[in-house]
């Protein structure tokens, strides 16, 4: 989990680690299952060392192992504000797949159409999972919105695969 995400999820109020995890689970729905709790605590420790988080020990829950309450320091608040204002977008690695097709065809390593079929199969499996998960979420929930994003991206990738199929079919029959 990215450090800034963890930091921003704590911006609402000082929280225990388990409260932070519950907030992430709510926002991510079924995708939150993939979240690694240990990783989150490692991130919290790093953020503390970097001076972006301050840790208090709460007296009221002294019997719990999870006694730490995490709060943003002024530096932490500053970092969250910068992160919110940042424009970033994950780049899907289309070039790698594209070059795989080009190289496979040029060297006769494999039929590009077979590679396209295999890739499509995998993406359709994911689309099936994402659609099912989306239908199981309540309308307009945080998790449903995230899953809709996944469905739309997969559709875009599948449309590109269709274009790949068309072009490589044409090249094969043309040569």
């Amino acid at each position: 989990m990215q450090q800034e995400v963890v930091l921003a999820m704590l911006a609402k109020e000082p929280s225990h680690g388990y409260q932070l995890r519950a907030r992430l689970r709510d926002a991510l729905g079924p995708l939150g299952d993939a979240m690694n709790a240990g990783q989150i605590y490692v991130t919290l420790t790093r953020l503390e060392k970097a001076g972006l988080l301050a840790v208090e020990r709460s007296a009221e829950s002294a019997d719990r192992s999870d006694r730490k309450v995490y709060a943003l320091t002024p530096n932490g608040q500053q970092r969250v504000s910068e992160w919110i204002a940042e424009v970033s977008w994950p780049r899907p690695d289309l070039a790698e797949f594209h070059l795989k097709l080009v190289a496979a065809a040029a060297a006769g390593l494999a039929d590009p159409l077979t590679i396209v079929d295999t890739q499509r199969r995998e993406l359709l499996r994911r689309l099936r999972d994402a659609q099912r998960a989306a239908m199981a979420e309540p309308d307009r929930s945080d998790a449903a919105l995230l899953l809709e994003g996944i469905v739309l991206r997969l559709q875009a990738d599948l449309r590109w695969l269709e274009a790949c199929e068309k072009t490589w079919t044409h090249r094969r029959s043309g040569s």
Partner: peptide
Amino acid sequence: LISMRDGAFVDETRLSGGTTGQLGALVGLE
């Protein structure tokens, strides 16, 4: 799922059996 080209089946596959775990990678959770 069956893929068809030029009047014949070229690929056939089961789609069932995936996991939502793999979806995490698509949204940068892994």
